[in-house]
Amino acid sequence: MSMDTWVLVTDARHVGAMLAAARGLGTPVTAAVVGSRALAELVAAAGPDTVVWVEQDAQIPVEAYAARLAAAVVLAAPRVLISSTAPAARVLLGAAAARRGSVVLPAVVDLAADGDHLVVQRSAVGGAVIETLETSSPVAIVFTGEDVEAPVGSPAAIETIPADLPASDLCLIRTEPAGGDSSGVRAAARVVSVGRGVKSKADLPLIEELAAALGAEIGCSMPVADDLGWISKDRYVGRSGQHIAPRLYVALGISGAPQHMEGIRDAKVVVAVNSDKDAPIFRTADFGIVGDLYEVVPALVAALGTT
């Protein structure tokens, strides 16, 4: 077994954080990229020692290359594999980890070498605790640590791996617009989001007033878009909905279920308004008001207008 780390990359998100975590181990870092040449070049400049690249055909999903990449991983036998939570990246990780016989650990926020052992910090119980785990086995990590800006340095060399795809096991049939009007939420600098704490659809004008005062788009948690149907599903923020990175995120009556928090992982400043002082969202929020949103929201609108 080599002591190297391989970071598996299928898109540009969280590359800086994963490479920084890998570099922290003090051993050689290879970035394995499945995607476009532009992605490979971006990653090459972000600090790995080497880049191996599988060129993706635009009509073939990344997952189709999993077995090919796993074969390359088996040859190199790295100690550590790292991926983001992105579905395609995880498929690469699972294929490689199974071939490599790696321990597979989710929600890892930090890792360090301790002699022959690898010490891993991972988030558990829906983010309520950080567990410290130790192993001497090869390990495959789904990394969720805080994102850091990737440095831009002199690029590492890019080595091309031939794709060798089996015929049409997996292919893209078509792409169609999902409909709705989510782009406003996705690109917005400020988002006001509502959860189950809002009692009736008739109360939404109250929220719209705050959004207007803030110059914010409106988003929501899964039940508000789905069970209740008050707001377009395309504005639902969460793991299977929109992943957003606004400068300011205001969560009104949202408890902070893990699947919702996944959608706002990259938000810069999070404000929570909730009547339950123990709501999980207060663990992640930067600012909070414990109180009835029906009193707090009008007060916020007034404060924004007068101060």
Partner: peptide, 12 residues
Amino acid sequence: EQHPGVPVTLAG
């Protein structure tokens, strides 16, 4: 979301 490595490693 809590066990994102299980389905993919099962396939592997």
